[in-house]
Design a protein around this nucleic acid. Structure first.
Lengths: 207, 207, 207, 207
DNA sequence: CATGAATGAGTCTTCATTCAT
DNA sequence: AATGAATGAAGACTCATTCAT
């Protein structure tokens, strides 16, 4: 957690530092990014960095959290209707909301990529925690589906939740990182959902 | 590519260096592993490293390739029957063969993890190439399924191939990395295949 | 010398700062203690420190002095009888009085340790001054002994005074610093005095 | 312990580094000496230092040890006769031998000073070890005295050994550090020994 | 080819001290 | 007087890479 000093800064300065760090880490990757580059980019003195943060991972975790919050805010309006429809349909909407966020703030959306590409203890722990929370949330909605008899019996709900979570938090982010256009990502999402919903096996038909 | 010198070494020494590098990189991650640690672990002089390789990525790519070859050899016997059965069934077998490899050579199997966690240009390129090849191969087998009318019409074959490839090359490796037991991984694989095959949507039943 | 500002503070605040500094310096040693740690421990703002003191040595010297005064107050009652008995006997009492102080205020007693472990100019000067004063005082009492014919002729009084001073101000403090129990320290003091008084050479006996 | 690399250097270079470190530490004190100053003084690159040592304390401990050995070599010839005379007499000779060393290599002799003025864990541990060894050695010779009935009954041998050890390893070194002339130190040593031997209490005389 | 010492650029991190409010 | 942010100098330590033997 950043030190108190950081939160006492003006919104402008805080934001400047955050954006600088996001830019630098997006360019070099978390494990290669240096504090030096971040302070240079932000134009603040080296020592100040340590008045604000305990180290790079401190800042990184802070960024992941505020970005998650921001991204989440794009989805807020969907939550009230979430239980009224099969979750796979809502997942499509949630995903699109996420991609709206990507459109509005490319750098921030991209930043999630690094959650999957650091070996640092803290980052791994954070990733695990976020994953657990995200998957648990999805599981609970899928349980709702099951209760409403919208899900095939025998479906491994946890596995399904995991697949959905990963697709959204990892695969899509990676596609964006690679530069795939959002339209293509939307199409792929539909194909993905379709496979999950319908399955791929041709039914023994009675034709 | 390693220099000629490397391939002129005795098999024993070559293997010693390879295994040392695998151990070090597995412990620290590719981006944090240092040449220093590798030569120390192998007990060879620092200068020798540069007589064998052009740098760390050179060695890394070499390792990925020999390991891929080794892993592949566990699956060879399956290829002749591959077109005779629906690919999802064969995928199960391929996966299990891969896990046999994991049992025999944990470190090598684990090593694939790092293919997904480096930001170095060369590694990213290698990863993309391997992915393309792997997915293309799976696609061709899935096309065979389609031709035999084993696949539901409208199935996005490329997406399906991608999902299968990722599950095998990335998700399972990650589970192993986390320390999940192989039995659990096998169960998960079955659940995964089941979802893909059957889908999760409850058919409107005529009860 | 602390600035006037410091002495205008409330007794409570002054004492808080003093105790914090003693704690920090006892833990880290004078040469490694930082102003940062002291203000953090005391919970006062960094800038305030410079309103009270000119630097760390300023505070350190102040602490040595108030502690010396406090320790001295434990011995006051002995001074009136000091000339009535051989000084070595009184030395035993003075030492015990010092150890009572140690019991009552461990941290303060311990603090003297640092007088012997700093290389800073000011501290070395202070140490020399205190030593001169202390030894001179002891010398004067030993002269009294000599006058009363309680001391063997030829005894090097200055050397004796120095030995006594060091034992009390340095050796005992160091033992306490190491964690030796006070009872042991008392026993050692007696052994020390005994050696000084009687000598260690076996008299040519007329057996 | 220095790394192997250090011992593979030419005697000249090794000695250059050792003397540079001794000079720097004597000037600034161990806790304030910096590696930067040492490498500058020696004229070697910064990185080399870390090829030779694991850190400053590593070098420091090495220096203490080689100096102790050198100092010891000045006393070697005394050891054969050590048991034939009362130890206090031999102590005078040992001390003088030490002072010969001081004359020949002022910087090295002085260096012992720092053993008593660092708070670093390693140095404290080394100091304790050396002290234990030195005191134990003296104790054994004093036991010899006791067996030969040269020592007054009831003498606390451990305390006496401690006093002798400290006087030689600490007090004399400190006097030298302060710049006292060797002749004065010799006189003081005699006075010190005299007090210990004869005691200071005037015997109840039967005059 | 083997060896391992030399080199110095590059980072992190800590703090004393100042200064504006 | 109190406060605490700003600043940058300073030092530790790590390593990739080169080079002489």
């Amino acid at each position: 957690m950043p030190k108190k000093t950081f939160f006492r800064l003006s919104e402008a300065k805080r934001s400047l530092i955050e954006r600088s760090a996001i830019t630098v880490i997006n360019e070099q990757g978390y494990d290669s990014a240096t504090i030096k580059d971040i302070v240079n980019t932000a134009g603040i003195p080296r020592g100040s960095f340590y008045q604000y943060f305990n180290g790079l991972s401190d800042l990184f975790i802070h960024l992941i959290q505020i970005i998650a919050k921001r991204k989440f805010s794009y989805m807020g309006h969907l939550f009230e209707q979430l239980e009224k429809h099969p979750f796979l349909e809502m997942f499509r909407e949630l995903t699109r909301a996420g991609l709206m966020f990507a459109k509005d703030d490319k750098e921030a959306y991209l930043f999630g990529y690094h959650l999957y590409h650091s070996q640092s203890e803290e980052v791994l722990a954070l990733r695990a925690r976020l994953e657990d929370e995200g998957i648990a949330m999805m599981e609970s909605y899928l349980m709702n589906d099951a209760n409403k008899d919208w899900l095939k019996e025998g479906t491994d709900i946890r596995m399904l939740a995991k697949m959905l979570y990963d697709f959204n938090a990892r695969d899509l982010v990676y596609q964006f990182y690679r530069g795939d256009p959002i339209e293509l990502m939307i199409k792929r999402t539909d194909a993905f959902i379709n496979i999950l919903r319908e399955g791929v096996k041709k039914e023994a038909s009675n034709e």
